[in-house]
């Protein structure tokens, strides 16, 4: 029962909101435009580092830091997008994953340690005066103390973070909805289906793809900021597992739907928490004694879920059976 309650509390977590937001960005790439972006973690890393370095290292105001993160994400999208968007789907996948790994290796490297903190990442420590999330904490309108909602207890900080992050998710989801019902959105979906057909009808396919990559990438960068606000920035968090987790989120909820990423993120984290709880239970009971680190079995589960989804229910929970999210050519 405890496991269930803890798992459900995960819904309110800023991390879940960050995943939802990141998956919305990925959905624009993959679900709507058909771009096989396997380097989404790179966009999140750029957002997180761009923001945290601006505030904690360069002492810039939060608004400027946000702009820096967005600008860097646009730059990254242009850098990988302009030359690569003419490539085949599997090549694009390899280039994007390579690009995101380059980002991760670079921020992890000792070369830039003065800015990025190298392998240690960036601290977010109020006491040491280098907290990049201080401005958000200061803006908290709730009185310090605890808030009880049903069986769950939140601190004021947690409540404020939950509200702030989920409002951002809602706003961005609404924005994507508005975009996708416009003729612009229809062109994106057309490109997903067959870009040559769209070219033959006079649409500048690479321009649209670049726009999609930029918008989805900026959304990813914002998600990256969200992801690190409650904790610290660590280079290891932005490995390709993050990207693949996001694909699982997207496929769980349903690609090419507006609320799929949101629902997917919630279900993903609740399941991940629940399985973690079950694994701990199993460890305590001694059933998982043969494993060196049984908690990692969660990600084995994620992998299996990904395979099962893509094979048996590619439309996810919210998708239309007929409008499968993939090209079956």
């Amino acid at each position: 029962m405890d496991i269930l309650l803890t798992s459900l509390q995960q819904i309110m977590s800023p991390v879940t909101a960050a995943y939802a937001l990141a998956a919305i960005g990925l959905n624009l790439h993959f679900g709507f435009t058909g771009l096989l972006n396997f380097g989404h973690a790179g966009f999140l890393a750029i957002g997180a580092y761009g923001f945290a370095i601006s505030v904690a290292v360069l002492d810039l105001p939060v608004v400027v830091a946000l702009l820096v993160a967005v600008a860097l994400a646009v730059l990254f999208a242009l850098l990988i997008g302009i030359p690569t968007l003419r490539l085949r789907a599997d090549y694009l996948a390899i280039v994007t994953i390579a690009a995101s790994e380059i980002i991760r290796f670079t921020v992890n490297s000792s070369v830039l340690a003065g800015l990025t903190g190298g392998a240690q990442g960036i601290n977010n420590n109020e006491a040491m005066g280098n907290s990049y999330s201080q401005a958000f904490k200061d803006a908290n309108p709730f009185d310090a103390g605890r808030v009880e909602i049903g069986p769950w207890v939140f601190t004021a900080t947690q409540l404020w973070a939950a509200i702030l992050t989920w409002v951002v998710v809602a706003v961005v989801a609404a924005l994507v909805w508005a975009l996708m019902r416009s003729p612009w959105g229809l062109v994106l979906k057309g490109i997903r289906e067959d870009e040559h057909a769209l070219t033959s009808l006079g649409k500048n396919v690479r321009l649209y793809k670049t726009q999609s990559l930029i918008i989805g990438g900026v959304i990813g960068a914002l998600a990256g900021i969200m992801l690190v606000l409650p904790s610290t920035v660590a280079p290891g968090d932005f490995n390709s597992r993050l990207t693949f987790n996001l694909f699982t989120v997207l496929l769980l909820g349903g690609a090419a739907t507006i609320l799929g990423p949101v629902l997917g993120a919630i279900v993903f984290w609740v399941l991940l928490q629940a399985s973690d709880g079950l694994i701990q239970l199993g460890e305590r009971g001694g059933w998982l004694g043969g494993f060196a680190d049984a908690s990692q079995l969660r990600f084995t589960l994620v992998g299996i879920v990904l395979v099962v989804l893509i094979v048996f229910r590619p439309q996810g929970m919210l998708g239309d059976r007929k409008e499968l999210a993939f090209d079956d050519k």
């Binding site: 990600f299 084995t300 994620v302 992998g303």
Partner: peptide, 8 residues
């Protein structure tokens, strides 16, 4: 998915 499952 297979890679993720097997790796972990």
């Amino acid at each position: 998915g297979v890679g993720l499952a097997v790796r972990y």
